[in-house]
Amino acid sequence: MQKRKSLGGVKVPISCLVAAALWCVCIIVWPLSAAAKNPDEEVCFDCHEETVTAFYNTSFHGRAWAATEDQESGCESCHGSADQHMEADEPSKETIKTFGSASLQSPDEQSQLCLTCHKKWTKLTFWEMGAHQENGVTCVACHGIHQSRSAVLQPTTCFTCHRDVRSDANKISHHPIIEGKVDCSDCHNPHGTLYKSMIVAESTNQLCYTCHADKRGPWIWEHPPVEEDCAICHTPHGSRHETLLVERITSLCQDCHTRHHVVDNKLTFPVNDDGNAKRDLGRGCIECHHAIHGSSNFRRSLTR
């Protein structure tokens, strides 16, 4: 069996070497920079000084535009021409483009404005194919356009709409989502994919194997539901049953293994002092049948 590669007797993963090289590249290319645009050049500055100044000084959009030396960019890039807004006796949201649930623009119109620049962003490659676009979820529903930090606060932002997932993630058995060790975007691309539930792999199994590489196999002895779809037995976000199972393990196994486990043995399951049938004790079926994800053993037996 292949073992870990060594370099001069010291185990050094290639990934570490490449990471170090990338780090050096970042240091070298750091000093490159470009010119800036001043916030007071904005037509909006007189009335919205605080917002415009903060936008230019701290937001990613402001910094990016400032660096492009593109004098056409700025507030009006997104909010449209301010002429009508400024000429009105009482400037209102009806004379300027706004974003969010109170906007007069449709969700699609709002998103298209963002796509004017961001449609070349790699993660938005499949935006038009995603469920968020289809259901009218706008960019500003998740992203703070005027804010300094670009990252969306996960999972809090996602839980705002996905309340069933929030419920699951707080159950006794769950992926470490609320602990911040697994982000929603580790498994889903909220900007759209070609796959169901906007997962970032061709199938559920391929996705799960990203982290659970020990479950990949290939196995001498397979357990067909495992190869078919992890979701037959597991629910991804959280469960009231151990190890994210969709139901109590003995019930789950017996949904398929009715004959083998009950008919042949229905009168021989011993009980403990409390009278409980042993098949339900502890972790249930896997107290004996461990290799349920597949076995690499040449021998086939109950435990494989």
Binding site: Q2, A213, G217, R299, T303, R304
Partner: peptide
């Protein structure tokens, strides 16, 4: 012996080549 032996997860290597395209 085979009677007290458990085989654990085997080493594995995974390779993937993928391509994608969007035309607007």
């Amino acid at each position: 012996d085979y009677s007290n032996f458990a085989a654990l997860a085997p080493d594995n290597d995974f390779y993937k080549l993928a391509a994608d395209l969007t035309l607007r």
